[in-house]
Amino acid sequence: MQRIIDTHIHVWDLQRAAYPWLQNDTSVLNQTWHIEQLNEGREQAGISYGVLVQASSNLEDTQLMLETAYQTSWIKGVVAWLPLKDPNATLEILEVQLLKEKYCKGIRHQIHDEQDSKWLLQPAVIDSLSILEEKNIPFDVVAVLPEHIETALAVAEKVPDLKMVFDHLSQPPIKTKEQFGRWGELMKVAAQHKNFYAKISGLGTTSGDFENWSATDIKPYVHFALQHFGTDRCFCGGDWPVALLAGSYTKVWNVYKEVINDLLDPFDSDKVFYSNAQHFYNL
């Protein structure tokens, strides 16, 4: 039985927190999603453990994730949110609550929803990221544009010891089948920084072909990530429930398993499916 940690699971409750990105969304996503709804899919996909990831820029969302973690034996970590534009508040929340939380394992901000692609480079945000660096708390980067990767590279210059992971492989050009263009150039540069990691996740929705995407479509991009970041700095995430737009949770994991087990031997695939995530998030 292959050990797998799913490092990218969302829950949200429309009665508990605000989710601005869901306004006017007409898909299956615009409803409350509880962790129990994943039970059957998790068993079918053979997932050992999971990490909950921030879904909105407010503390109510973080509280919901922490409660869910305490109530769900297989959830081992939470990637929370902090008001990074306010370093004093960031430090206070960390010291009063999150540093004492056994489940708080990382921080994320939905930078892809900010109008300014350089949002992370604001001096106050850099100060907050420096606090994360000092406390050894990793940061999830949601890069959907090449400019977001450029911004992350600039952050790495200013906060060199901050561990960062690119969620969803920073949206590779699967849709256009480009190999590998501007995305590839920037990800190659990022891979040269020892503190950048790559999360193999969200590739079904990235493909643009929700009905028919397959291992063949994503394999070149997964191979690229493994080649450049190495088998010690890549790990996987299912991106539930967002990934449901492009098929079942089981399909997502079957495709990832097919690709990674084809590219790697059992020793290295175990690192990508399990131990790298354990190391990065200190699970």
Results as ranks from 00 to 15, higher is better:
267 F>C: 04
89 A>T: 08
150 E>A: 10
249 Y>G: 06
30 N>V: 06
158 K>Y: 06
55 A>R: 07
49 Y>W: 10
123 P>F: 08
129 L>N: 05
152 A>P: 00
76 K>T: 05
125 V>R: 14
177 K>L: 06
151 T>W: 00
207 S>F: 02
135 K>S: 08
18 A>C: 09
78 V>A: 06
136 N>W: 00
18 A>G: 13
186 L>F: 06
255 V>S: 07
130 S>I: 05
271 K>C: 04
202 G>I: 11
160 P>G: 11
275 S>M: 01
118 K>D: 07
241 P>C: 05
130 S>E: 10
96 V>D: 02
231 T>R: 12
203 L>N: 03
85 K>E: 14
236 C>K: 07
196 F>S: 03
246 A>M: 05
70 Y>G: 02
129 L>M: 03
83 P>I: 07
246 A>D: 04
112 H>P: 01
191 A>Y: 02
25 D>W: 07
211 E>Q: 14
148 H>A: 11
48 S>W: 00
97 Q>W: 13
187 M>P: 02
172 P>W: 09
231 T>L: 07
127 D>C: 08
234 C>I: 01
145 L>K: 14
3 R>G: 01
175 K>W: 11
168 H>D: 03
233 R>T: 12
3 R>A: 05
88 N>P: 01
268 D>A: 04
241 P>S: 10
9 I>D: 01
4 I>C: 02
115 Q>L: 13
268 D>Q: 14
30 N>I: 09
9 I>T: 08
129 L>Q: 07
283 L>V: 15
116 D>E: 01
55 A>Y: 09
89 A>P: 00
7 T>S: 15
5 I>S: 13
7 T>W: 00
26 T>D: 13
194 K>C: 07
111 I>D: 04
107 I>K: 11
89 A>L: 14
244 L>G: 14
218 I>S: 01
